[in-house]
Amino acid sequence: MAHLFSLIPVAVQNQQAVVEILGCNEKTRRYGLTLSQADARQLVETRSRALISNGRVEFGGGIIDKLILKFRDSPYLFRQNYVDTLDALIETFYYFKNESLDELSDDALLDAMKTYFDHNCAGSVELLQNRELERLARNIRFGYSPFAREDEGEEGEDKA
């Protein structure tokens, strides 16, 4: 009986997410960034994979459209790396939702990711994952302020 109430996102939900993602094109076009139907499907698949691998479940359209709109004005995003970067950012987002013990809201985590990506990491997803967000998650686990930096002591907080 349990399988009847499966928690895995259904096809309808994924289709809805594709429509929402394509809807963002209007707002990102002026930055020279657009996604095709195939790109949108790829991002939705990445989301499904990331959710499964991180043991999470999502309801509604999810965060992809929020992420697109948040990052659209990043100086480090351009047509050639747009889809791949979004792909990596989606995986990063769900991984660090877990690592931060769900203490940060979606918006707060996206804000932090955007600030680090544009400033401290200069567009490097690797630095974002392995240095900035890792430190943020560690701070949360140890009960410090999420944005405290070691070199500034517990009290020091960075821009995010």
Binding site: G55, R56, V57, G62, K97, D102, D106, D107
Partner: peptide
């Protein structure tokens, strides 16, 4: 989640 998170851990959802 007070509407602040669109996803939760599967264990929590279960």
């Amino acid at each position: 989640t007070f509407g602040e998170s669109s996803s939760v851990l599967v264990t929590k959802a279960e």
